[in-house]
Amino acid sequence: MSEAIKTFFSPSVLGPEIFYGSSVALFLIGLYMVLVKKNLVKIAIGLTFIESGVNLFLISIGYVWGKTAPILNKTLMMGTPSKEVVDPVPQALVLTAIVIGVAVTAMALSIVIVIHDKYGTLNISKIKELKW
């Protein structure tokens, strides 16, 4: 039993457990909120959670043990920087994804405001005209 705990807390196992695990957990919590919750604001929060989980996963793919951030200083410029710094491509991807995410969330919330104006409720099971 103590062997199992030791392997659980050894750094090489703990790294993927933390970062991959929390990204999957965040993704699944967001998906649960989108599928089960009836409140429109909570559904919007669930969408942002799904997005955050995917972003965390992409950044953790780019990470390499013991390397630094992809911002070069003089000593790094002298040698081969790719041996010293992490992969910058996922970071550039996620940087743009976050900004698009907030715009999409704002637009979804504007639709929520219009729905609340028309029906007077945020509960989707009370909006009768949407049922089929």
Binding site: S52, L56, I59, Y63, K67, A69, L95, I98
Partner: peptide, 17 residues
């Protein structure tokens, strides 16, 4: 994000998220 050596993304996430 900062721990994962992505300071650019960390700043963006803190300001936006």
């Amino acid at each position: 994000f900062y721990i994962l050596q992505a300071p650019d993304v960390a700043i963006t996430q803190a300001a936006i998220g």
